[in-house]
């Protein structure tokens, strides 16, 4: 049913479309701007001449980036922690979620509350820091992934989902003599894949973007993540100059169009850190959206 357009309505439409158009541009233009600056002629970039479209396109920056001291190591740390942290998040949400959905679990009610209660309190930055220190997690790679063992919220999501599965599906396997572990891996896990996908996507983005744990718990360069390395480059112009000095490739290269400058390095590293997110976003968008819907449902 199409209504007749009144003047007020028409004006409202114009304003409405324009507003959303503008806001969308504000949201994505910065990414485009960084992209075109990372692939344009570096001397033009330094002069601030690249505003709307790229000029003198080249990909030298990306090739040189891999030769920058510490950067490949940082990328490796970010990548492995994302993979391992996501795997641990999946297991620590789905396996206890499964076992705690079983009525025969010894002390089920108590242990479930024991886990859920942790969502409502936090000891705070300092006590957590001291605890990690006593556990030997300071300056230890494991500090990035072990805390993923505790994810009460995701556990509740999994448990609720598993409880909605008809028990008959599992009973037939039980009669066949399959143990809990077999039933979990072969029957339950495949059935809860939709929720696992959502948890995995959020865990992966969280791991990739994680920043404060590097600030708080590490001081060794070899443990720095991509996010933290970018932060250092942004904070300290001197750090950048140092990078360029210790990079013989950059010093030997005299072509100003492709010579690394602090500005071009900044744009390039920013792009390298954003790209994985931008790449996965279109494919996983439905899971991202599902995530917030699930989050809205009470635990």
């Amino acid at each position: 049913m199409r209504r007749k357009l009144t003047v007020g309505s028409a004006i409202f439409n114009i304003i409405n479309y324009t507003f959303f158009g503008l806001f969308t541009i504000i949201c994505i233009f910065p990414f485009y701007y960084i992209l075109i600056n990372s692939i344009s002629d570096n001397s033009l970039v330094s002069m601030g001449r690249i505003m709307l479209y790229p000029r003198g396109i080249h990909i030298e920056n990306y090739l040189s980036a891999f030769k920058i001291k510490n950067l490949p190591q940082a990328a490796w740390i970010s990548l492995t922690r994302t993979v391992l942290g996501t795997l641990i998040s999946i297991i620590s949400a789905s396996f206890p979620g499964y076992t705690l959905s079983k009525l025969e679990f010894w002390g089920r009610k108590f242990w479930y509350r024991f886990i859920v209660a942790t969502m409502y309190f936090s000891a705070g930055i300092i006590p957590v820091y001291v605890t990690y220190k006593n556990l030997g997690l300071i300056n230890n790679y494991l500090v990035y992934i072990l805390p993923a063992l505790v994810s009460p919220f995701n556990l509740i999501l999994c448990k609720t989902y598993i409880e909605s599965i008809p028990p008959s599906l599992e009973e037939s396997a039980e009669i066949d003599g399959a143990g809990y572990l077999r039933r979990y891996t072969q029957i339950i896990f495949p059935l809860i894949k939709p929720i696992i996908a959502t948890i995995a996507v959020f865990a992966a983005v969280g791991q990739w973007n994680s920043f404060m744990d590097t600030v708080l718990y590490t001081s060794r360069t070899r443990l720095f993540t991509l996010q933290y390395t970018l932060y250092l480059y942004l904070r300290e112009a001197s750090a950048l100059a140092e990078v360029l000095k210790t990079n013989p490739e950059a010093a030997a290269n005299i072509d100003p169009a492709t010579l690394l400058t602090p500005t071009s390095v900044r744009f390039t590293i920013t792009m390298l850190t954003i790209l994985p997110i931008l790449f996965v976003y279109p494919f996983f968008q439905k899971y991202f959206l599902k995530g917030i819907m699930i989050g809205a449902v009470k635990g």
């Binding site: 679990f105 024991f114 006590p127 605890t131 063992l149």
Partner: peptide, 20 residues
């Protein structure tokens, strides 16, 4: 079931309760 879940319960204890 409890024993299989114990590692996760211990992790919860260490990471969420011990800091208290």
């Amino acid at each position: 079931l409890f024993l299989m879940t114990l590692p996760f319960l211990i992790a919860t204890f260490i990471f969420s309760y011990v800091p208290l």
